[in-house]
């Protein structure tokens, strides 16, 4: 049974790969523009450092590492789960009925059927960026640091993915939720591109710790750089990413189940 299910997902994804690469020139243009958008994101950070010598007490080399780690995590989540945004369309039109009657999980089905391969451009660009940032920051590789470098983008991606799924469920209650999810997903991408010391007050507490964004790029980068946290958390915070991501994924899964049970179709 499990084999059969996996084979079905493999076929769904393979069908998408074939269809999206059918027009090769168009596909190439889309992959490149996906990378261009990632370039604009990091370019914005560079522009800030053209004007200021330091941001929130961090030099360019340090902030660049945070932005690169966060950017890589976001791009992985965007590739794997980003298309869940389309749930709005499924719920509004009632097409979600068709998803529910098939003998497969609703969430993996949607993810497999709508996967957007052009986002590989962003993944490739941001992965290269991490490599550059590690070199620029002059981090001496030790087994622990290499392990942290490998774990960080994955756990960050799980956190972003959880937010993609959790915010997408708004569509079940709020038919015309429009750009609401973007506030926390794309907003989170911009938020994590800078040191947490930049933000202040309730906003920092809510986004950095409430939603866990501080553990995507900021704390892992501090651990890699061997710098203490000006905000007062112990050095172990750099390794807290997987725990935070696990909690977020659990919360998102529960919310998703609750939301799907709430689905009432369009009644047409």
């Amino acid at each position: 049974m499990a084999d059969g299910v996996l084979a079905t997902y493999r076929r769904l994804v393979a069908a998408q790969v074939r269809s999206q690469t059918q027009y090769r020139a168009s596909f190439a243009v889309e992959v490149v523009s996906s990378a261009v958008f990632a370039f604009i994101d990091i370019g914005t950070v560079l522009v800030m450092f053209r004007v200021a010598r330091a941001l929130g007490g961090f030099t360019f080399r340090e902030a660049f590492l945070m932005a690169a780690l966060a950017g890589c995590a976001f791009s992985l989540a965007d590739l794997a789960v980003g298309n869940i945004e389309r749930i709005r369309f499924y719920v509004r039109t009632g097409l979600f009925d068709a998803v529910l009657v098939r003998p497969l999980g609703a969430l993996p089905q949607l993810l497999a059927a709508d996967v957007a391969l052009r986002r590989l451009g962003r993944v490739a660009f941001t992965t290269g960026l991490v490599a550059v940032a590690v070199r620029v920051a002059g981090i001496h590789p030790t087994p622990a640091r290499i392990a942290l470098l490998l774990v960080t983008p994955v756990s960050g991606a799980v956190l972003f993915g959880a937010l993609f799924v959790a915010t997408s469920t708004a569509a079940f209650w709020w038919i015309d939720s429009g750009e609401f999810a973007a506030a926390l997903t794309y907003g989170g991408r911009d938020f994590t591109s800078y040191p947490m010391t930049v933000y202040q007050g309730l906003f920092r507490r809510a986004f950095a710790y409430g939603l866990g964004f501080a553990f995507v790029g900021y704390y892992p980068a501090l651990a890699l750089l061997g710098r203490p946290d000006p905000l007062g958390l112990p050095a172990a915070a750099g390794w807290a990413g997987p725990v935070v991501a696990g909690l977020a994924a659990t919360a998102a899964a529960l919310l998703w189940r609750y939301a799907v049970r709430h689905y009432r179709s369009t009644g047409s």
């Binding site: 800030m48 004007v51 200021a52 010598r53 330091a54 941001l55 929130g56 709020w174 015309d176 939720s177 429009g178 750009e179 609401f180 973007a182 506030a183 926390l184 907003g187 911009d190 938020f191 800078y194 010391t197 930049v198 933000y199 202040q200 906003f203």
Partner: peptide, 23 residues
């Protein structure tokens, strides 16, 4: 929804630009 999103981005950009001025 759009106003909520614009406002969240407003907070992020505002703090970042204030940090730039601070730097």
């Amino acid at each position: 929804a759009a106003i909520f999103t614009n406002s969240v981005f407003g907070f992020v950009r505002c703090f970042v630009l204030l940090a730039v001025a601070g730097g």
